[in-house]
Design a protein around this nucleic acid. Structure first.
Lengths: 255, 255
DNA sequence: GGTTGACCCTGACCCTGCGTCAGGGTTGGA
DNA sequence: TCCAACCCTGACGCAGGGTCAGGGTCAACC
């Protein structure tokens, strides 16, 4: 006959675990000897090891008792289920290993690979990290709020990166963020961007595309604020001129 | 800006989980809007996903904060450690799958393969299940109490199964368990066993080997009780006779 | 402007599967 | 006789949330 610690050692568990199984009624309390110690038979070792085998496989203790007393058919199907679950866990852990390896680079976990590719492309084109982070954040918000527009946006973005003039302006904007608002280079940039807007007004559903590109963090940059103001003013002037000749609708002027 | 449920959905966790991470200080509390709702930035989504990536990999929440703010070198070595642990878990689960498959047959999990082979051999020789269970239990107790004698016992057991006469007596004993104590077949069996004992007295360290074989559950079987009594009596008589001629030591007689 | 259903808030208790501590009694070998 | 190594009961603690109670908000529709 075995003491509780001998039984526990045989099954590879702690004494506390054995007592816990008694407490929850999973393993029957054995007879006690004269001093009140529990004394176990060899059958108890068999039972305990069967219990541990199921518990190790992830079966909740509350289900094990019923399982061990089930009919062979039910038992077999339960075992099959447990095995499938184990395999699923193995696959999950394998996936977690992959994700852990990607932890070093921030966005790779959060965004789909196409967007990560766009961000990588921006990096290789020399776009500043600040701008890239802003871009990343806007993709994350887009994904959380209306993820269905993402495929179209991804196509648009790639298309604009394929156009050299768009790309040149994009990079110039990126670099201009810290310029003085009176920097003469800014005047040339505004002229070029306005020309771009005129050229693309037809095929772009919403006008002011380039304006949108820089608007998100414009409040932090006086130079960008000037770009937006200037482009808005010119676009308004153009629209007013067109309206005057067509339907005569006055437009609100914003300095 | 995201609400708590939008953030949670983005990271694939529950709202409760996000609040729990605030509670334990793992994710900083964001600013609230006018009605007291939490409002999250895209950066919060990045942070939360990085937290979940580590938590899914089994890192305790209490360690994650330090990990995310660690130096690149420490971070890298921690990641390596986590990855090793994950692989260890995968291997364990794979082993549990194997064990689960063996659950159907009781002793295979508990005893070393050599002993399982012995029990299988007994089964194929036609030994009763009752006797096999008794044998199994004695092996389990032996393993728990002095496992170092097992290799020798395994060799002994296999050797005795290789001897046809021993095997015949063993099987006869097994079958006699339910016989009437006055069954005439029992007399012949006792004669044969006594002859076996005499023949093996030299090379067997302790005498009464066959007696031991049946003694363990003898109290439950009148037939076996008779076998033991008879063999004991005859052995005593032999020992007394030898003693008388050699050193003249009287032996205690136990009827 | 009233209702409805989906969200949001805090605070509290509940769950599993044991670990661990307290405060004692027992056993077995030196 | 003493000591370490066991054994007993009972109780609280822990991670990582789930769930319920009891309320406030928001947005859309009628």
């Amino acid at each position: 006959m075995l003491t509780i610690s001998q039984l526990a050692a045989t099954a590879g568990v702690t004494v506390r675990t054995v007592r816990h199984y008694h407490h929850v009624g999973l393993l029957p309390e054995p007879a006690r000897d004269a001093s009140g110690y529990r004394r176990y038979s060899a059958q108890a070792a068999v039972d305990l090891i069967r219990i541990r085998t199921l518990a190790d496989a992830g079966v909740p203790l509350a289900h094990i008792d019923a399982l061990l007393h089930a009919q062979p058919t039910e038992f077999a199907s339960a075992i099959t289920y447990i095995d499938v679950e184990l395999q699923r866990k193995i696959d999950q852990l394998t996936d977690y290993r992959r994700r852990i390896a990607e932890l070093a680079s921030g966005e790779r976990l959060v965004l789909p690979p196409e967007v990560v590719a766009i961000l990588d492309r921006m990096r290789s084109l020399g776009v500043s990290e600040r701008r890239i982070r802003a871009e990343r954040d806007s993709w994350i918000l887009m994904q959380a709020l209306d993820s269905h527009v993402m495929p179209q946006r991804i196509r648009d973005k790639n298309a604009s990166f394929d156009d050299p003039e768009t790309m040149r302006l994009y990079l110039a904007c990126d670099q201009s963020v810290d310029w003085d608002p009176h920097d003469p280079r800014l005047d040339r940039l505004i002229d070029d961007m306005d020309a771009w807007e005129i050229k693309h007004e037809r095929d772009n559903s919403q006008p002011g595309y380039l304006k949108l590109v820089v608007s998100r963090i414009s409040e932090a940059s006086p130079a960008w604020q000037r770009i937006i103001d200037a482009l808005t003013y010119r676009a308004e002037r153009r629209r007013t001129a067109v309206s005057d000749t067509e339907v005569s609708t006055p437009a609100t002027s914003d300095s």
